[in-house]
Amino acid sequence: MTGIVKWFNADKGFGFITPDDGSKDVFVHFSAIQNDGYKSLDEGQKVSFTIESGAKGPAAGNVTSL
């Protein structure tokens, strides 16, 4: 699925993605970002991701920028 990064705190390594389908915002951890180098996201960035079952509920996985 796709969405827009609502916010991401690079110091803490997590944030939230707002899915394009209008569903509830999804937690994203830096370890789910699939790019080389520094793993961070920018507010407003368009991303593709999967929904994984995290310890505290749904979380984004396999996050790639579009």
Rank of each mutant, 00 (worst) to 15 (best):
M1I: 10
M1E: 05
M1T: 08
M1G: 07
M1H: 12
M1S: 08
T2G: 05
T2L: 09
T2R: 07
G3Y: 00
I4Y: 12
I4P: 01
I4F: 11
I4K: 11
I4E: 06
V5S: 01
V5Q: 00
V5W: 02
V5D: 01
V5K: 00
V5G: 00
K6R: 10
K6I: 05
K6D: 03
W7A: 03
W7H: 04
W7L: 03
W7Y: 09
W7N: 03
W7T: 03
W7K: 04
W7D: 02
W7P: 00
W7I: 04
F8W: 15
F8S: 01
F8A: 02
F8H: 01
N9P: 02
N9F: 08
A10M: 09
A10F: 10
A10Q: 15
D11P: 06
D11M: 14
K12R: 12
K12P: 02
K12E: 05
K12F: 11
F14R: 02
F14P: 00
F14Y: 14
G15V: 02
G15Y: 02
G15H: 00
G15K: 00
G15F: 02
F16L: 04
F16V: 06
F16R: 03
F16I: 06
I17P: 00
I17G: 00
I17S: 00
I17L: 07
T18G: 05
T18V: 13
T18H: 07
T18S: 12
T18I: 15
P19K: 03
P19G: 03
P19Q: 04
P19V: 05
P19Y: 06
P19R: 04
D20H: 07
D20C: 13
D21T: 07
D21I: 08
D21Q: 06
D21Y: 07
D21L: 06
G22N: 08
G22W: 06
G22Y: 06
S23R: 08
K24R: 14
K24G: 11
K24V: 12
K24A: 13
K24E: 13
D25V: 05
D25T: 06
V26A: 03
V26T: 03
V26C: 06
V26W: 03
F27A: 03
F27N: 02
F27R: 03
V28W: 02
V28M: 05
V28S: 01
H29E: 04
H29N: 04
H29R: 04
F30G: 05
S31H: 08
S31A: 07
S31R: 08
S31V: 04
A32F: 04
A32R: 05
A32K: 08
A32S: 13
A32L: 03
A32M: 06
A32C: 06
A32T: 07
I33M: 05
I33Y: 04
I33W: 06
I33A: 03
I33H: 03
I33Q: 03
I33K: 02
Q34G: 08
Q34D: 10
Q34Y: 08
Q34E: 10
N35M: 15
N35G: 15
N35F: 11
N35I: 14
D36V: 12
D36E: 15
D36M: 11
D36C: 14
D36K: 14
D36A: 14
D36H: 12
G37Q: 10
G37K: 09
G37I: 10
Y38F: 13
Y38C: 12
Y38N: 13
Y38A: 13
K39L: 09
K39F: 09
K39W: 08
S40N: 09
S40D: 06
L41K: 01
L41W: 04
L41T: 02
L41D: 01
D42G: 13
D42W: 14
D42N: 13
D42Q: 15
D42L: 15
D42A: 12
D42K: 13
E43S: 15
E43H: 15
G44C: 06
G44N: 07
G44H: 05
Q45F: 05
Q45W: 10
Q45G: 08
K46H: 13
K46F: 09
K46P: 11
K46I: 12
K46D: 04
V47P: 00
V47Q: 00
V47T: 02
V47N: 00
S48D: 04
S48P: 00
S48N: 09
S48R: 11
F49K: 00
F49N: 00
F49W: 02
F49I: 02
F49C: 02
T50N: 08
T50L: 10
T50H: 10
T50E: 10
T50Q: 09
T50S: 10
I51L: 12
E52C: 11
E52R: 11
E52L: 14
S53Q: 14
S53F: 14
S53G: 13
S53R: 08
S53Y: 13
S53T: 13
G54R: 06
G54T: 14
G54S: 15
G54I: 05
A55E: 14
A55T: 14
A55N: 11
A55M: 13
K56R: 14
K56S: 13
K56G: 10
K56A: 11
K56L: 10
K56H: 15
K56Q: 09
G57Q: 06
P58T: 11
P58G: 05
P58N: 10
P58Y: 10
A59G: 06
A59Q: 15
A59Y: 15
A60N: 01
A60F: 01
A60H: 01
G61K: 15
N62L: 08
N62Q: 11
V63W: 00
V63N: 01
V63H: 01
V63C: 03
T64G: 06
T64N: 11
T64K: 10
S65M: 15
S65Q: 13
S65V: 15
S65F: 15
S65D: 09
S65G: 11
L66T: 09
L66F: 10
